[in-house]
Write a protein that binds this DNA or RNA. Structure first.
Lengths: 128, 128
DNA sequence: CTCTCGATTCGTCAGTTGCGAAAATGATAG
DNA sequence: CTATCATTTTCGCAACTGACGAATCGAGAG
């Protein structure tokens, strides 16, 4: 078992000096609204934070593909490819279709590629 | 040294069967254009794939803050906060200002929060 | 039924990440 | 100068990731 870390006693408020208490509280409550969505957002970005998964999404942007073709596009083993597909599938971005022994994957939500494209152009705009 | 893995000989084309060679090549070349930007994009998403870093960005959206205040907002140690700030700073998203012993951080690029907001609303739209 | 074969899951391992503790830095106060 | 204090860096550790090979699953074919 992963032995619990000796939590640093959040009990007594703080031993960190400085800080503008009123402002900190104001910002804390401003964040509180978004706090609920935040883990999902971080999870979303974590999912996209891998070049192979991005390649999969972009490849599927060109149309439905079977696992072995995706593996060839990525230059990965089928096991590794399947693993990445599973992660994308679990978060609901991919649909799959069974044709005989083959499994075909497709993008389930065009808005995803749009969002990625938006972020990409934001990045491009930044580095001129 | 991290001993090289016994690379599976990309020399001979493939022992994975199946696959539509023409289509795979077409998609490979379609991806080739984006390939250059892709590691940067993945790195960008990796940076955002952490709730504490997202909290920092959102907190700084409310205005400039010193490290210790950010630490209080996050409920983290200053060392940990500084570490996350460093990552955001290294990728050029934060500016900093030195006032006496304190260091004040600010968002350097409003487009970043806009992009995040866009992704967030895309996610929200998906789960209805 | 058994055999084949694409896909998936499992086990393992190296590399990465996030954090706390402690040392180092660097600016101000005395 | 020395002392102090906010911040940063370094180090070590536990947890997580991403990849592979091996084992397994599951849908035809025979």
């Amino acid at each position: 078992m992963p032995k619990a870390r000796p939590v640093p006693q959040a009990a007594d408020i703080c031993n960190i000096p400085c800080f503008d208490h009123a402002r900190v509280d104001a910002i804390k409550s401003a964040l509180a609204d978004k706090e609920e969505r935040l883990p999902a957002l971080a999870g979303f970005y974590k999912l996209l934070g891998n070049a192979n998964r991005l390649r999969i999404l972009m490849a599927l942007g060109e149309g439905e593909l079977c696992v072995c073709d995706i593996a060839h596009v990525l230059g990965l083993s089928m096991a590794a490819t399947s693993h990445q597909l599973k992660l994308l599938r679990e978060q609901g971005w991919l649909g799959m279709r069974n044709d005989g022994k083959m499994v075909y994957y497709r993008l389930d939500n065009p808005a995803l590629l749009e969002a990625i494209k938006g972020d990409l152009s934001m990045l491009r705009g930044r580095d001129e």
